[in-house]
């Protein structure tokens, strides 16, 4: 008699399997992790599970995208766009809302943001019309914005998106800048790859008088 390997799917049924299947659809969660999380939920206090379920439903129901910048928000405009202390003359263009959080952690930038919703990736069928580029151009029409900082990811898709935006923005009287690329703070120079080191040389800055 032949023995077929037993998988997680063969063992469980009903609600437990449904839970494992749904958890397994989340990014970065494989079958083993899904099984571990599912049994953690089954072992947890019912009140804790109810709180998790409420948080999931509430987040999906209440969170929306800012009408101005495209960042996640709970109202028509996000907290950053609604903040009067923010500088209106500088816009930092990022790919995702996660990037806004990363830049906010630096406490260096006091301007506003524009979230594109991704990067140009022709192989995946994502072109300029699939991103919030038209909305960015509309924000620049009134002449208030004097500088656009292109903070797309320093990878092939991000660089190409920045090149496309730079070409589009040259028609508008606005200063266009790109985040510097170079060596990570705390690293050793000898371990830097030649692409990053090359960028660091290109973007070197003058110090002293």
């Amino acid at each position: 008699m032949s023995t077929k390997p037993t998988t997680i799917k063969d063992v469980y049924e009903g609600a437990v399997q449904d839970l494992i299947d749904e958890l397994g659809r989340l990014p970065g969660v494989g079958p083993k992790s899904a099984q571990r999380i599912a049994f953690h939920i089954l072992d947890a206090d019912p009140a804790d599970v109810q709180r998790l379920a409420t948080a999931l439903v509430e987040a999906k129901a209440r969170v929306r995208f800012c009408d101005v910048c495209g960042n996640v928000a709970q109202a028509e405009t996000c907290q950053i766009c609604a903040d009067p202390r923010r500088i209106d003359t500088v816009i930092c263009v990022v790919e995702e809302s996660k990037d806004v959080v990363a830049i906010e952690r630096t406490r260096e930038f006091r301007g506003k943001y524009h979230v594109l919703g991704g990067a140009i990736n022709p192989i995946d069928g994502i072109g300029p019309s699939d991103l919030r580029i038209r909305e960015l151009m509309a924000r620049l029409q009134d002449g208030v914005v004097q500088e656009v900082i292109l903070a797309t990811d320093p990878n092939v898709e991000g660089e190409a998106t920045a090149a496309y935006l730079a070409r589009m923005l040259t028609a508008i009287e606005v200063k266009i800048t790109r985040l510097a690329s170079g060596l990570p703070v705390g690293g050793d120079l000898e371990f830097a790859d030649e692409v990053t080191l090359g960028r660091a040389f290109e973007g070197r800055t003058l110090i002293g008088s």
């Binding site: 022709p122 092939v156 660089e159 190409a160 090149a163 692409v195």
Partner: peptide, 24 residues
Amino acid sequence: TIDALARPICDDYDLYTAGTTMLE
């Protein structure tokens, strides 16, 4: 790295779209 072709190609949007089609 033997040849960092990504840099010149990604700096020009027309090169990028043509190059991506070649890779695909």
